[in-house]
Simulated scan of single mutants.
Amino acid sequence: MQAIERLPATPADAGKEKPTSWWRVPMVWLVIGGPLTVVVASLATAVIAVRGADPVLGPGERGSVSERTSTPDAMTPALQARNHAATPKR
């Protein structure tokens, strides 16, 4: 059975529309969805950061990847290393 569209009862009713619910308006979901997506993404990022946190090494502890795989000269102070890189070889 097909729905029959009814004509307005009076000419004054011709311009009136039935109000729609707020959740049926697409713009509302864009306004709510954008910030909600950002909040969910930030919570996911926080969970990843907490679960995959690297252990903190103390002042006397060794074992970082750069110390194990580099040459002994890797422990030279930063100022000496910078100056060495800036001067040409003789």
Results as ranks from 00 to 15, higher is better:
residue 19 P to D: 04
residue 61 E to S: 03
residue 16 K to H: 00
residue 60 G to L: 01
residue 18 K to S: 01
residue 84 H to R: 10
residue 79 L to V: 11
residue 11 P to C: 04
residue 83 N to L: 14
residue 30 L to C: 13
residue 14 A to I: 01
residue 11 P to T: 11
residue 50 V to A: 14
residue 42 S to G: 09
residue 36 L to I: 03
residue 23 W to Y: 15
residue 21 S to G: 06
residue 15 G to L: 10
residue 30 L to Q: 14
residue 29 W to G: 04
residue 55 P to I: 03
residue 60 G to Y: 08
residue 76 T to W: 15
residue 82 R to A: 08
residue 54 D to V: 01
residue 25 V to R: 15
residue 61 E to T: 03
residue 67 E to L: 11
residue 13 D to A: 12
residue 50 V to F: 14
residue 51 R to S: 05
residue 51 R to V: 06
residue 31 V to Q: 12
residue 63 G to N: 06
residue 12 A to S: 06
residue 85 A to D: 06
residue 33 G to R: 11
residue 86 A to F: 05
residue 11 P to I: 13
residue 62 R to Q: 11
residue 41 A to P: 07
residue 72 P to C: 04
residue 86 A to L: 14
residue 20 T to P: 00
residue 85 A to E: 09
residue 35 P to W: 06
residue 12 A to R: 09
residue 18 K to V: 04
residue 20 T to I: 14
residue 10 T to D: 02
residue 88 P to C: 04
residue 13 D to W: 00
residue 44 A to F: 06
residue 22 W to Q: 02
residue 8 P to Q: 02
residue 74 A to Q: 09
residue 57 L to F: 04
residue 19 P to G: 05
residue 35 P to K: 07
residue 27 M to W: 15
residue 85 A to Q: 02
residue 26 P to M: 04
residue 10 T to W: 03
residue 52 G to S: 11
residue 79 L to W: 14
residue 57 L to T: 01
residue 63 G to Q: 06
residue 68 R to Q: 10
residue 38 V to F: 06
residue 78 A to D: 10
residue 13 D to Y: 00
residue 74 A to M: 08
residue 62 R to T: 12
residue 60 G to A: 04
residue 67 E to W: 12
residue 9 A to E: 13
residue 73 D to T: 07
residue 23 W to T: 07
residue 72 P to G: 06
residue 89 K to S: 06
residue 31 V to N: 01
residue 45 T to A: 15
residue 61 E to Q: 15
residue 67 E to Q: 08
residue 49 A to E: 04
residue 15 G to N: 04
residue 27 M to V: 13
residue 29 W to L: 09
residue 17 E to C: 03
residue 33 G to F: 14
